[in-house]
Design a protein around this nucleic acid. Structure first.
Lengths: 340, 340
DNA sequence: TCGCGATGTGAGATCGATCTCACATCGCGA
DNA sequence: TCGCGATGTGAGATCGATCTCACATCGCGA
């Protein structure tokens, strides 16, 4: 009711000037007489005028909206990042539009298509695929600033904020080895391919550096959901010569492993040692608490948002690639095997 | 690069017709010759034409965007709902813009202000305050459809989707009483005032119906974060004559209680019985698992989205108020006290 | 054969904000 | 006193899609 339909035209009429002059007064550009400007501002105030952002966007070609396409907004990792991005954007009067790809490349393509026609200013993406990324390359070439988080696209040069997955995984496995383990299972996913590959590499590199032969049968692959991880865990530990330790590549996998092991009556760390990638609230509620590789999650969102805002402000510098180190948080889920 | 700047004008030129005819062919209205229509569609296809939604919005006054203002997107409850809403909207070619109020009325007001100038089509809100809601009433009166979730606004008649907080809380406390408890602590929050009040009422009503006098000293109030809940729990259980059971009003409170009790060396259910409002993944990972009042969380988002879409489609019926029942999930965190 | 409804198309207006261009006035230095 | 830069303002174009209105043609029934 109140300010419905108050346009610049109304303000101009109330101040008895043209729309051009009203615009000049409100946006402080060009020449405007002091007394005139005052009259316009006063009229705008009185009528409760608010510029129509859609009209502005039609002229400028851009809405003050940034698109965020995470793998899954329900994943606490992305929920936290979404929140941080939104806070940062809000400071610069931008809005955040979230569209979850649900780790599905086809859906990711469709989402980007539809966001494109919204004339969105820029994008923060966590690409689902490690290989099928032509649509993202194309998006970037059309001029919309793109910042990648969590995962990079090899063919595309743009700002990115990721985590040292290889190093984190290596540190986790090193820690297990240093506690006497050499039959170390790996529970990895097939969807977040980029990070999964890096974490797999860290696992392999650690084993190799300690002269432990890679045993493919200790690696179990599952879709990144708690349910699938439970099954994969049970499969892995139903084998005759089962692993003495398990490394899980993300927090959903870790949760699945916890449930799977419990259902098999295997206790942690007595029967199996466990280290997970990605810290999560649950890790400190279990008994024992779970040892994890923590990501600096609170830094990713704000930095990605800042990078994007700088690009939107026209900053022209070489793409920045930030790779945060991880941190091993030792709790109680790893047993020391002696004599083995 | 590709379809940058392909407008209706380009399509019309390529098909050698006017913009008006091109629009008619593409949007299937008015009279267009079959052969002409085909030529236009073919040209649009070939050029990769995509209608500019901003321009459409300027005419229609509305962008295909719905705003969602939850209390906190990091809360898994709202993250899940956000996800469900997005999926539902996407089916109808609408986008979801998420702006978290962080349980702060002032921020909620600012967010709505800024979303308003975006010409957003409708809103799904979880109002932060139980009393200060004039801005929401005003928003609704300006004509934008509003659907409330989780919490209602007494002064406003509009669609709402909430949960039977009073009944759920009553059932939880009834269950504790039926297990012989009569000194039952309550850990409640001060921010989500609407739900908190209802849950408090359920607690009071249950006690009253069993003839148990209300003891204000058994009620502890804290901000709805894990940290504050830990403190409040410790405060409550440091008293001489401590409660034999505790009811917590949301999952963050429940987590805080778990940590607080553990830090005091109190074991569940041996020393204290516990029932929490709101189920959460962690509740099944603890030992024992936590008995909770579960909300039908998977129904809230889709229903709210459907209500809003119906309003956007022009449906004119009386506001619908849906109040879902809750469900008590009995696990292992409540002990039976005999003889007491 | 005439007339009118059905069919088909384009010119131009519109949504709201902003920018360009043209024009008018003022005041100061030569 | 003249002239020109500085100052101030409005008409109208523009962004892109859509809609109204005007106009033209066609074909069928009377």
């Amino acid at each position: 009711m109140t300010q419905k339909g108050i346009t610049l035209k109304d303000v101009a009429a109330a101040a008895k000037v043209s729309r051009a002059t009203a615009a000049r007064a409100l946006n402080s550009y060009g020449y405007v007489g002091d007394e005139t400007a005052l009259r316009v501002l006063e009229a705008a105030e009185r009528l409760g005028y608010r510029a129509n952002l859609v009209a502005q966007a039609l002229r400028s070609g851009q809405l003050p909206i940034v698109g965020f396409v995470p793998g899954d907004i329900q994943n606490p990792f992305f929920a936290r990042i979404a929140h941080d991005i939104e806070v940062e954007l809000r400071k610069h009067r931008h809005n955040l539009l979230i569209a979850s790809s649900e780790e599905n490349v086809e859906q990711e393509k469709e989402l980007l298509e539809s966001l494109r026609s919204l004339s969105i200013r820029g994008f923060i993406l966590a690409p689902t695929s490690a290989t099928d990324n032509q649509h993202i390359v194309q998006l970037a070439h059309e001029g919309a600033p793109v910042v990648l988080i969590d995962r990079v696209v090899k063919e595309l040069q743009c700002d990115s904020v990721v985590v040292d997955n290889e190093g984190g995984a290596r540190e986790a496995v090193d820690y297990l080895v240093s506690n006497g383990h050499d039959r170390i299972g790996l529970l990895r996913d097939d969807s977040r391919i980029f990070t999964a590959q890096e974490r797999l590499a860290g696992y392999q590199n650690s084993l190799q550096s300690h002269g432990i032969a890679l045993d493919e049968s200790l690696i179990s692959v599952a879709r990144s959901t708690v349910e699938h991880a439970v099954d994969a865990t049970i499969r892995l530990f139903s084998r005759r010569n089962r692993p003495t330790a398990l490394f899980t590549v993300d927090s959903l996998m870790t949760q699945g492993a916890l449930l799977g092991l419990r259902s098999m009556g295997l206790s942690i760390p007595h029967d199996v040692s466990l280290v997970g990638f990605d810290d999560f609230n649950l890790a400190t509620f279990t008994d024992p608490q779970i040892t994890v590789v923590a990501q600096p999650i609170s830094e990713i969102g704000p930095l990605a948002a800042r990078f994007l805002l700088e690009r939107l402000a026209g900053k022209k510098i070489a793409p920045r690639h930030i790779r945060f180190p991880t941190r091993l948080i030792v709790r109680g889920s790893v047993a020391h095997l002696r004599g083995r």
